Computed example of a mutant assay.
Amino acid sequence: MKVVLIGYMASGKSTIGRYLAQEMDMSFIDLDVYIEEKEEMTITDIFKTKGEIYFRYQEHFYLKELLAATNNIVIALGGGTPCYASNMQVINNSENTYSIYLKANVHTLVERLKNQRSKRPLVAELSDEKLQEYVAKHLFERNKYYNQASSILPIDNKSITEIVTELKVQLH
Rank of each mutant, 00 (worst) to 15 (best):
R112K: 14
S118R: 10
T161A: 13
E39A: 11
A85F: 04
E37P: 07
L126T: 09
M41A: 04
L131I: 07
S127R: 04
R142D: 11
Q148M: 14
L122M: 15
I155H: 11
S118F: 09
C83T: 10
M26C: 06
Y134P: 10
L66Y: 06
N147I: 09
K50E: 13
V110C: 14
R120F: 06
I91Q: 04
S151K: 14
E141P: 07
H138F: 11
Y34A: 06
K48Q: 11
I73H: 03
I53F: 11
L167K: 08
E39K: 09
T161V: 11
G79Q: 04
R120Y: 07
L109C: 09
Y57A: 07
S86P: 00
I155E: 02
T165R: 15
V110P: 07
K158T: 07
L126Y: 14
P121W: 03
G78S: 05
T70W: 09
M24L: 15
Q58F: 08
K119I: 06
I75Y: 01
N143V: 09
V135L: 02
T44C: 02
I100F: 00
I100A: 03
N72R: 14
H107V: 11
I152P: 00
Q22L: 12
Q148N: 04
E162I: 12
M41I: 01
D32S: 10
E37D: 15
S94L: 02
Y84E: 06
K144V: 12
M24S: 11
T108I: 07
K114R: 14
T42Q: 08
Y145I: 05
K50W: 08
K48T: 14
V164R: 12
S127G: 10
D45I: 01
E36R: 10
Q132T: 13
E40I: 03
V33Q: 14
A85T: 02
E36C: 08
A85N: 13
G78Y: 09
S118V: 10
L102Q: 09
I73G: 03
F47K: 00
N93S: 12
Y62W: 13
Y34Q: 06
K64V: 03
T81D: 02
T44N: 14
R120Q: 14
I75H: 01
I152Q: 13
H107Q: 14
P82M: 01
K64N: 08
S86R: 04
I155Q: 03
L139E: 06
P121L: 01
Q116K: 13
T44M: 05
N87R: 02
F47E: 00
M41F: 03
N71H: 11
S159I: 10
T161P: 06
T49N: 11
A85K: 08
N115T: 12
N71W: 00
K50L: 13
I46G: 08
R112Y: 10
T97Y: 01
I35Q: 08
N72G: 05
A136D: 13
L131D: 10
M24I: 06
P121D: 01
E59P: 03
Y34M: 07
E125F: 08
S27T: 08
L102V: 03
M41G: 05
K103T: 02
